[in-house]
Write a protein that binds this DNA or RNA. Structure first.
Lengths: 351, 351
DNA sequence: TTGAAAGCGCTACCAG
DNA sequence: CTGGTAGCGCTTTCAA
């Protein structure tokens, strides 16, 4: 049974608990014979050490907390999957907190993680409120905090994000310069990332379009797919747009569904986040990849170095890239004066 | 800083650690004045108790382990989301293990959870191998084990699942009786659930079709969407089928994509698991709902009663239901002799 | 209602 | 290389 402890093992193996501990943790010198005796007893009795007692001494739990807003959203599930894969490889377990909402205060979640002695917290996305900033700084007084696809500056806080504003602006440019200046923008989140995308859209419209921005913010509590479909359907005759750009593929998929039903399937549509949804729709969806997966591996390597006592760069930014599909095929290059739109590789910049 | 312990709080509040402990855990009698003093110190100093030291004494961690094969798969992300929501409501944290594969031995994962003293393990899906069975029974010697959408019998193991074989058989019946007897079945997993669906398909073909089963198992390591699309495309002129039934919506979506490209978009298609994918495709996908979400809440209530020392029913089975959409509209009812195909509600049966 | 003190299971230091 | 032992931070008798 599971009710065996290190004293039992020591007794059965005829050694001290100190020796058993050394064998279990591969620490210190142990004679071949002692090791063999201890390992035999452990295997025979099926002894499993108590990680709590261990951590109480070492002050390390080998556990990382991940805070994510909505794990059922593929944009969060993918990073959680990638992070847990990488963390397992490094010998960490994952304590997962699904906040179920973006805007709620994270204070209690951080307390929960600190209470459980996680070695670090990784947060997927963040907001732009003052409160959010304070919550992160509070947590960072106890444990290092890492942010994927979001940014908050502060001691002991490390971020990795995508320059989504720039690529959103670029998307608008391409839409406009291919003759579609009335770009409808659909979004449903006000996270850091959401704010940046919106800003990029607005900049793009200001720079390249003769018409005013046409933005619609959907209720983030509802399904983005159905919400977007409904909005586009209702826009019939009211809204005057000739292209659609969205903050997420699911919004784009919904919009396309409605457009097709309205006989406007030729309207250019660009989504965001490059999910599998884009391949399922017809026409297939052109989308923007914010390289979440790569952000994860960057964060993990930053985490590793922080836990080793180093002081790595606190904020890294990737550039987004287009994934061209049918809903807006790659346009002939229309270079902006002097600029070159090529080179949207996953180039890493320090800040 | 976080380096404060219960002794510091006791000293600052002018009471003993026992009293502080009582205040924190709302246990035992504490005078109003002592309580106030302690609470003030805790609030002022931002003291966060060490959950490990607590659990070392109480032998309860208020943590549940969830083992799921591939969290980036929406069929697993949804249950994890629902489970974590329900568990949080009950005061539990979640230790998440993403196994990244279905077939690997779960032994090490269980050990990891037991080592971390979780109060119970919830596993999403399971296999049918002898090894799997042994792993579960091993784990169940230490902690109660709960299975969502899978079944393994044994002491201290509790399951909730959907009668997927029955509804798969029913799907085949409806396809056949509406004039499509050459049903192609696409699948890519050999889990308990996968095996049952396949069995249902075979039974259905035996009972209602004049032709032999046409089954293709795809490589589960590859994308099911693209894999299915490729298989169907390659089947051109080789395979003779007039309907498609798949073990998952993503396979169905891929198949439909290929069918449309081949000018066969009128071919009936039925998917499984009723995901959002089905709404994005065109034509929209008829699918089967195995009520995973409901399974989660059943498992959580079972878990609650097990942790309270009760002995609830060990296995509960739900019936699946059809979600009718364009790819195979609800047929006029074609009752089997005497039977009635109505009533696919989420009826719960005991075993 | 309170506090002293003996653990919970394990680690790590120190002496041998 | 080994073992004795004093903690890690908290809970929980048991007496007061």
């Amino acid at each position: 049974m599971g009710s065996m402890n290190i004293y039992d093992v020591a007794r059965l193996a005829g050694v001290s608990t100190a020796t058993v501990s050394r064998v279990i943790n591969h620490s210190g010198k142990v004679s071949e014979e002692s090791r063999r005796k201890v390992e035999n007893v452990i295997a025979r009795e099926g002894y499993i050490p108590n990680a709590f007692a261990h951590s109480l001494n070492t002050k390390k739990s080998a556990t990382i907390g991940i805070i994510c807003p909505v794990i059922s959203d593929v944009n969060h599930a993918n990073p959680v999957s990638e992070l847990s894969r990488l963390l397992r490889r490094e010998g960490f377990e994952v304590l997962l907190i699904n906040t179920e909402s973006n805007m709620e205060s994270k204070r209690a979640f951080f307390v929960s993680l600190i209470n459980r002695q996680v070695d670090a917290a990784i947060v997927i996305g963040c907001n732009t409120t003052q409160r959010e900033k304070e919550d992160f700084q509070y947590a960072a007084e106890h444990i290092p905090v890492f942010i994927i696809n979001g940014r908050i500056d502060g001691e002991n806080i490390y971020c990795c994000l995508c320059n989504e504003a720039a690529i959103a602006r670029e998307a608008v440019r391409l839409l406009c310069q291919s003759g579609h200046e009335k770009v409808l923008y659909l979004y449903d989140s006000q996270t850091y990332s959401g704010v940046k995308k919106l800003a990029g859209y607005r900049e793009g419209m200001r720079a390249y379009s003769a018409s005013e921005p046409i933005e619609i913010m959907l209720d983030s509590e509802r399904s983005s797919f159905y919400g977007a479909a409904e909005i586009v359907r209702q826009s019939q005759g009211k809204l005057n747009f000739d292209a659609v750009f969205t903050a997420d593929d699911s919004l784009a998929a919904g919009a396309m569904k409605a457009l097709t039903a309205m006989g406007r399937s030729e309207t250019p549509v660009i989504g965001f986040n490059n999910t599998i949804l884009g391949a399922c729709t017809s026409p297939e969806l052109t989308s923007i990849d914010n390289h979440l997966c790569q952000q994860c591996s960057i964060v993990i390597s930053t985490l590793r170095s922080v836990l080793h006592g180093e002081k790595p760069t606190q904020c890294l930014t990737l550039e987004g890239t287009f994934c061209w599909r049918e809903s807006f095929p790659r346009p002939e290059e229309i270079p902006e004066n002097g600029e070159n739109a090529e080179g949207w590789s996953s180039f890493v910049t320090k800040t």
